[in-house]
């Protein structure tokens, strides 16, 4: 049991947890800035970036794909601004236009390019391949202390851990200016906070989290984790720091519970196959948000 768990379940659970937290943390600020859809937008627009990076380098490797995705995210941010200014339409609509167009472009590129020999397709883009991120060298819990086995951990795990750490560091280090400029942008400018730069940095960090998570677990989790845990946490507290901690906790709960339910839930119900872990994690986070909306102590209009 132990060896099977460590080899087959522990890596995907850890990756799911790290991806969920990495997206939920910046999601708090995006939500309060009424930019929650940016997470959605990013996870879609990175597709053409990743495909272009693949076409240029001919391989599915991390850093070119990360660069391609980051480039696509920046192009999208610029396009959203342009559509907003030139078309004089509201930000949400501009975002909607840009990210669906870029995602569609990515799908076309993907179809036209020869990616049949690598694991890169539309389904992968949506659901990721969480269940396949296994650690075959593990023979039990003691493998966690065995350098030889550790060397063969799924690379997604290391990458996701690095990205999650960077996201957490960004938010911790810039906590104060982030909070002030999110609440009161005009005031933030007058006390010398580089508001525009900071907003851009937040988008770039979110993009980084989205891209890393997208590669490991697919865009469904990314979209859900940017919005659901922060939105649910907001309904449970009236303090920003508490909200961010709760959102991280809810992200972890969604990831673990979602993975377990996807793997064992259908069996408990008598079905034969497991369901998509990514889909179940997103569903659980949605249910948590629903619960918070119904029973959260800080619902709008709720006093005390």
């Amino acid at each position: 049991m132990g060896s099977e768990f460590v080899a087959l379940s522990l890596p995907p659970i850890l990756i799911g947890c790290l991806a969920a937290v990495a997206c939920a943390l910046p999601g708090n600020f995006l939500l309060l800035r009424r930019q929650a859809l940016i997470g959605d937008a990013i996870s879609h627009v990175v597709l053409p970036g990743i495909v272009v990076a693949f076409l240029l380098t001919g391989m599915v490797s991390t850093w070119p794909m990360m660069l391609g995705a980051a480039g696509a995210a920046l192009v999208a941010v610029a396009l959203i601004q342009i559509v907003q200014r030139v078309g004089r339409i509201e930000p949400g609509a501009a975002m909607g236009v840009v990210f669906t167009t870029m995602f569609a472009g990515g799908v076309l590129l993907l179809e036209q390019s020869d990616t049949s020999n690598v694991h890169l397709d539309v389904q992968h883009a949506l659901y990721g391949n969480l269940e396949s991120l296994i650690w075959l060298d593990a023979t039990g819990w003691h493998s966690l202390l065995d350098p030889e086995a550790l060397a063969w951990l799924p690379p997604e795990l290391t990458r996701m851990a690095v990205v999650a750490a960077l996201v957490a560091l960004f938010i911790a280090a810039l906590w104060r200016p982030l909070a002030i400029s999110t609440f009161d942008e005009g005031f933030a400018r007058t006390i010398g906070i580089p508001v525009t730069l900071l907003g851009l940095a937040l988008v770039v960090v979110s993009a980084m989290a989205a891209v890393a998570a997208f590669d490991a677990v697919g865009s469904i989790i990314v979209i859900a984790m940017f919005i659901c845990p922060p939105a649910a946490a907001r309904l449970m507290t009236d303090r920003l720091a508490t909200q961010v901690w709760i959102s991280a906790g809810l992200a972890l709960v969604s990831a673990v519970l979602g993975y377990v339910l996807a793997g064992y839930g259908p069996l408990w119900l008598g079905a034969d196959d497991a369901v998509s872990a990514a889909g179940m994690i997103a569903t659980v986070s949605g249910l948590i948000l629903g619960g918070a909306a119904l029973f959260g102590p800080k619902r709008r209009g709720q006093s005390g």
């Binding site: 309060l32 507290t237 303090r239």
Partner: peptide, 12 residues
């Protein structure tokens, strides 16, 4: 000019 629904207290 600001969103007073922001999760923060007067002292913050």
């Amino acid at each position: 000019s600001v969103d007073w629904d922001f999760p923060t207290r007067a002292l913050d």
